[in-house]
Design a protein around this nucleic acid. Sequence first.
DNA 1: CCAGACGTTGTT
DNA 2: GTCTGG
DNA 3: CCAGACGTTGTT
DNA 4: GTCTGG
Length: 227
Amino acid sequence: MCGRYTIIKSPVELEKEFEIDINKEVFETTYNLAPSQNGLVITNQHKNEGQFFKWGLIPFWAKDEKIGYKMINARSETLIEKSAFKTPLQKRRCVVIADGFYEWKKIGKEKHPSYIYLANKKPFAMAGLWETWSSPAKETIHSFTIITTKANEFMSTLHDRMPVIFDNNSDINLWLDNELSANEHLQLLQQLPSDKMAMHQVSQMVNSPKNNQPSLITPLENLGTLF
DNA sequence: CCAGACGTTGTT
DNA sequence: GTCTGG
DNA sequence: CCAGACGTTGTT
DNA sequence: GTCTGG
């Protein structure tokens, strides 16, 4: 599962890492990107361009864009049998650029967040699907969802689901390759090995989507010693 | 055939 | 649009 | 994902 | 409890 993430690395760094062009006038650093906000994606249609799409998939046939609030994740195991995802799997795949994401653990009534990232601290790409939707007022909205899989051992201390993560450009290129079959695409949707990941607890400041500052990813124990 | 849904997560 | 349920 | 709102009628 | 907004 994945419901909040960060884009902290500079656009120049991301351009180099993923071999894309990014519109720097639209790019915004974020420590707390929430569903309904714009995320940075690379689609199978424009593989050399970073685009900003709305998080929460709105199928092109939807009558109301609010359906996107419920479509922030897609289970990899059932993509092929769900009507909302079947066509996007075949025609509209993307990767979602991030450098870390948050997961919550409920302890009593409190929700305690952790920040998860790659052990090598590099940015990564989460597998996703995208759509183009036209509102009744003829406004066009591009949107996306993040594909999840069973959590690896490392993540399972927090949750039983995690996003599908590609940590290298060759997997990204295969996922975005229009020549591969649906089965070949599905085979790419694997857990990232536990030893490639790292995490630490962070403060509950991140719980509110209104907050967006560097201290959101500061380890909880370090925050404590600052005061 | 037509009508109606189309989703995931976590918690109980 | 496409699938499921009736 | 979490936080925060959740409503209508009639009167000014 | 459930939906909307960020």
